[in-house]
Nucleic acid binder design. Structure first.
Lengths: 194, 194
DNA sequence: GTCTATAGGGGGATAGAC
DNA sequence: GTCTATCCCCCTATAGAC
């Protein structure tokens, strides 16, 4: 009894155009790139000012000129996520025609600026920084709102989101996406009844 | 075409009996309890030897007698998880009669020793400790194997696991379980075809 | 705007008394 | 088995030269 408002085409191939990767040279952005990168690759503990400065090819003093404290650096990254959130949601939903497939695929492969930032911030989740958890909840809610527009059944919509979040966990621990994951996505995309 | 090998009773209420909470006094166990607790509540950064010792009501020297290094402490917790894994899987699957509901409910409410340990270790995921990610992958695989025994369709089985993992993410960032989550579980439990 | 130097604090680990 | 005292390193942040 559930209807997915989509033209169910080839679900596994349609990919949206996301924000292009920027590795531009303006100091502030280079620092945020480096911070997000080290968070993704080695986690919170490894993300020291020294290491971030090293990756950004800048001195620690230079870094602290742009961001007066580590807290400020963190909020800088949260700001970037907030900034990219809307435009990425729009791009994901617009492009493929199929919201579910596009959403779930974007949960699997972090290859745009938004996903990079999002995954980096996930590494800071639940570690006492209330700002972080708040920003993450806001991001989740924004995606949920968008999914709700595309999927008429709210329960199915939530299910799709939970599956996407599950895929993030698997990525987090290095559990590779396999054929079954793709089949799950395929089934969620193609089925119009529960 | 999917058949869930279960007596589909009242899915939302059946709860298994898990391992009882131990807050016993043997130094080693108290230390592991404290370590897991601080990881869950405040994350990896806050989990210093000083803080763990404080919570375990022991001195740092005393702690380091039981676990010679922080690395050893970590592996101690991994050992506990491995130890509890099998028995918790068995308890979860045995009790309710319905594997899906039991699994998903245990993903929501961490109130047994295994879940406590598991969530704590999740805070260490993707932070460069290869042991941790390996242990987590093993735990995920063990649950997957068990779900596969209960759910005849492997795609549905994976879907159920992904939803459970998604619930963990939501818990991680303090997004409370709501009515929709319960409805998702209910639907996954009751439906026998995709 | 970027650098070096350094202060100040905290974390992990060792030594050795009890 | 548990404690105190201590060492050393690294991390954040500040000061100030260029």
């Amino acid at each position: 009894m559930i209807t997915v408002t989509t033209n169910s085409g080839d679900s596994a191939t349609s990919q949206p155009e996301k924000t292009a990767r920027h590795k531009r040279g303006s100091g502030r952005e280079r620092v945020l790139d480096a911070y997000a990168q080290v968070l993704r690759e080695e986690g919170e503990t490894a993300a020291t000012l020294d290491e971030v400065a090293r990756r950004a090819d800048i001195s620690k003093g230079g870094l602290l000129h742009h961001f007066g404290s580590k807290e400020a650096l963190m909020e800088g990254l949260l700001g970037r996520m907030k900034e990219l959130n809307e435009q990425d949601i729009a791009a994901t939903m617009r492009a493929g025609g199929d919201g579910i497939a596009a959403y779930l695929h974007s949960s699997m492969q972090a290859e745009d600026d938004y996903s990079d930032t999002f995954i980096a911030i996930l590494k800071l989740a639940g570690s006492g920084h209330e700002n972080v958890d708040q920003a993450l909840r806001a991001a989740f809610n924004a995606w949920q709102d968008e999914l709700d527009k595309v999927i008429s059944d709210p329960v199915l919509s939530r299910l799709v989101q939970l599956v996407g979040d599950g895929l993030y966990v698997h990525a987090l621990i290095g559990r590779d996406v396999d054929e079954l994951d793709l089949q799950v996505i395929d089934r969620l995309t193609k089925r119009t009844e529960s």
